[in-house]
Design a protein around this nucleic acid. Sequence first.
DNA 1: TCTATATATTTGCGGACTCAACTACTTCAC
DNA 2: GTGAAGTAGTTGAGTCCGCAAATATATAGA
Lengths: 139, 139
Amino acid sequence: MASLKDDELVVALTTVTDKAQKQLASALSYHGLGFSEYLVLRCLQKAPAHKMRRIDLAQQLSMSASGITRLLNPMEKTGLIAKEANPRDARVSLVTLSASGARIFAESSVSFAAGATSFLEGLGKQARKDLAGIVTSLT
Amino acid sequence: MASLKDDELVVALTTVTDKAQKQLASALSYHGLGFSEYLVLRCLQKAPAHKMRRIDLAQQLSMSASGITRLLNPMEKTGLIAKEANPRDARVSLVTLSASGARIFAESSVSFAAGATSFLEGLGKQARKDLAGIVTSLT
DNA sequence: TCTATATATTTGCGGACTCAACTACTTCAC
DNA sequence: GTGAAGTAGTTGAGTCCGCAAATATATAGA
């Protein structure tokens, strides 16, 4: 069917992804979380010992180091995460997932997954597999 | 192959699209254009008589009306677009593509298309068709 | 050891965008 | 007509984020 040119395809992709982000951000807002904040918790959850350097967080989220600083500051104040020093290297400050952060993450993940499912609901099983293959080969 | 859960799929999708936007924004910056500014020119180019209401522009770009105001103000100052009143309805102010706006758009479109092609280069013909079908059914 | 370079983080400044409130105009019900 | 409600657009305040510069620490080379 529709064969779009590369530029049209990418514009359509950004449009549709933007829509997804807005839906998901709205779902997360019920838990008092922003989209990036959720991704931080998600990264920490997956990380060994739920602990990460700020710079690695920045890379995984494709953000600048300063963006991470400003994102994490309020999260530390509300107790979602905690700061921890690295005895081997005084430059780095590790970020850890707090117990309440883990709880909020678990709760918000339900909303997030529901939002993701509703966003993808127009897609059949094969289309989802295709999309998964496409995004991994674009990464 | 890889079958991701809905939430993982959407996270991967936003990550990859974010990467695309950054590449394209960088390509457009050589023409002095931001990503949203390029999309404005693109909309106006496609519009009948290269003319649109600000509110319709906002909807097509999934932006707020105030975002459009702030986006268009500098574009008008640099002469990419022009303001025009609507004789039938004094509330609306039409936005038109200027000659220089059309020229800049044509030039930047080359860079944009090249960026889009380079972003999609890991994808075969079938994958592009699949992706096109997927984004249209998600719209 | 001392200096140069590299790395991790924070801060000042600014851009892009949103929400809510406001102005200005139009339309509809009566 | 006149008032109420709706629509188009702008403005003020605030959020999120990036870039460049500054700070602090680490590492490598003479």
